[in-house]
Every structure is written in C-alpha cells, then in structure tokens.
C-alpha cells in the first residue's frame, strides 16, 4: 500500500495527524497543496455548483408540484416498485464504484476493469428503467408538456438521468485510460473525481427518491 499511497494514494499534507515540513497549521501557511488535493478540491467545488443546479430544480418542483392543470397528480402516476429497482441499481453501482477504488489502489488491472464494468452495467440498468418509466408515462399522454407539474418532474429527474448518462461516457473513457495507460498518477486523480461524481449522483437520487417519489405517493 505504501508505494501506491505515494503515487496515486492519499499523500496529503493537509491530512490530520501527518507530520512533515509542509504541515498545514490551520492558517493556510503551508504552501501549495499537492496535485491530488488541488484536483480533488476543485472537483468538490464543481460538485457544489452542480448541487446548486439541482437545488434550483428541486425548488422549481416544489413550486409547481400542485400545478397539474387538470392532468394527473403525482399520486396517480408514480410506481414505487420500479423506482425501488432503480434505487437498488444505482446504489449497487455506487458499491461497485467503491470496489473499483480499492482495485485501483491495489493497481489490479483485471479487478479494476471488472468492477468498473459492473459499475457501468448497473448504471445502464438504472437509465433503462428510468427511460421505461418516462416512455410509459408518455404513452399515456402524460408528457412534460401536459402540465407544469410534469414539466418540473421530467426536468428534475431527467437532469439526474442526463448526469448518469454523461457519467457512463466518462466511465468508458476511464476504463480505456486504465487499460491503455495503466495506473498513472494523473489518471488516478481523474478516477478520484469520477468516483466523487458517481457517489454525488447517489446523494441526489436519494433526495429525488425521498422528496419526489415518497412524498409524492403520500400526498
């Protein structure tokens, strides 16, 4: 683990308990951080900004949730069974992504590829389930143009789906990079960002599941 930690592991001067010349003392005088810290920190900021986009969509949904314009209300169209399967797929995907993080830290190419493939397949299953939900609603005539409620529903859930789809593309390039270039430090940093992104999508989904589907079928 030690050699891995030096290259793509967590050589982080800001970590608690670590001693060294670069130790940060809490006033920011420690000098430039390592590349891994810089990249991870920047990506955290990006995720925060993405969370704000979702916050706007959640707020919009809250405002428009009752504006059904004579169309269906949330209670009439949500199928919790399918949503439960979607949730299971996405959480499993996150689990495999965590396994992949371990595989990358171990520098095991086979395990990395297998776990990333599992991450991707479960993610794809999520997308297919979500598409089938949207397709079924559309077939009944409940498309996004039907009412402001459906507009905000499709946009919020669809925005998450677009994120997952973009994540799948990114995942493919990550697998190709590990395969072609090996466990280079810069690719390790990119994978750090990818795994943060993937877990972040879970967090958003938990909010969607609770605030849109669970609350929607109760009210």
């Amino acid at each position: 683990m030690s050699s891995t930690a030096a290259s793509i592991g967590s050589a982080d001067p800001y970590r608690l308990g670590q001693r060294g010349p670069n130790l940060a003392r809490g006033h920011g005088g420690g000098g430039p951080a390592t590349k891994r810290v810089i990249v991870g920190y920047g990506f955290w900021l990006f995720l925060l900004s993405d969370i704000i986009i979702f916050a706007c969509l959640f707020a919009t949904y809250a405002v428009l949730a009752q504006a059904t314009a004579g169309g269906p209300a949330a209670k009439q169209i949500f199928e919790l069974d399918r949503v439960a399967w979607e949730t299971a797929c996405l959480l499993a995907s996150s689990f495999f992504c965590g396994m992949a993080t371990i595989a990358v830290a171990k520098r095991n190419q086979l395990l990395t590829q297998v776990t990333l493939l599992a991450t991707g397949l479960t993610g794809l299953a999520f997308i297919l389930l979500e598409s089938s939900e949207f397709a079924a609603l559309n077939a009944q005539g409940f498309g996004p143009s039907r009412s402001a409620f459906l507009t905000s529903f499709y946009t919020l859930v669809g925005c998450h789906g677009v994120h997952v789809t973009a994540g799948l593309l990114w995942l493919g390039t990550m697998m190709a990079q590990f395969f072609a270039k090996g466990f280079r430090p810069d690719i390790g940093r990119r994978f750090l960002c990818f795994s943060m992104f993937w877990h972040f999508l879970d967090v958003i989904w938990v909010a969607i599941f609770s605030l849109v589907y669970l609350v929607g079928t109760r009210l």
Binding site: V63, G71, P144, S145, A148
Partner: peptide, 20 residues
C-alpha cells in the same frame, strides 16, 4: 426547455409560473 420542447415552467398556460 419551454421554448424548444414545449415545457411549461414560465408559460401562461398549464400551470406555468412566470414570476418564478
């Protein structure tokens, strides 16, 4: 989305809310 796909965030029709 309102303009391209006929969504109803801010329209006068179908429950859209321009003040939002």
């Amino acid at each position: 989305l309102d303009r391209y796909l006929g969504f109803h965030f801010f329209t006068n029709e179908a429950g859209g809310n321009a003040m939002m």
